[in-house]
């Protein structure tokens, strides 16, 4: 019971971090005309954040399928 409460708390934290990184004025920062590793910075940023969020979620709910 207490463990699942902690899990839910962590998921809310992941949600808030996602909101901050994707839906705050911060999103304008990586939208630069330059390229990084030959790719648009924003493109790298978005996929990077996306992957981080997924990894964070997988970590939070780990080992709980059964």
């Amino acid at each position: 019971m207490r463990r699942s409460k902690l899990m839910r708390q962590r998921l809310v934290a992941v949600f808030l971090i996602g909101m901050l990184l994707l839906f705050s004025p911060l999103i304008a920062l990586p939208d630069q005309p330059q390229l990084l590793f030959g790719l648009p910075v924003l493109y790298l940023y978005l996929f990077g954040v996306w992957m981080l969020l997924i990894a964070a979620m997988a970590w939070v709910v780990r080992g709980g399928d059964e």
Binding site: M7, R8, L11, V12, V14, F15, G18, M19, L22, L42, Y43, L46, W50, L53, I54, M57
Partner: peptide
Amino acid sequence: GIGFLPIYLGPTLAATLWVF
């Protein structure tokens, strides 16, 4: 440009709230 992504980023973020 990047306009196709919100359709998939939205559900990703929403998924964190699915436990509720």
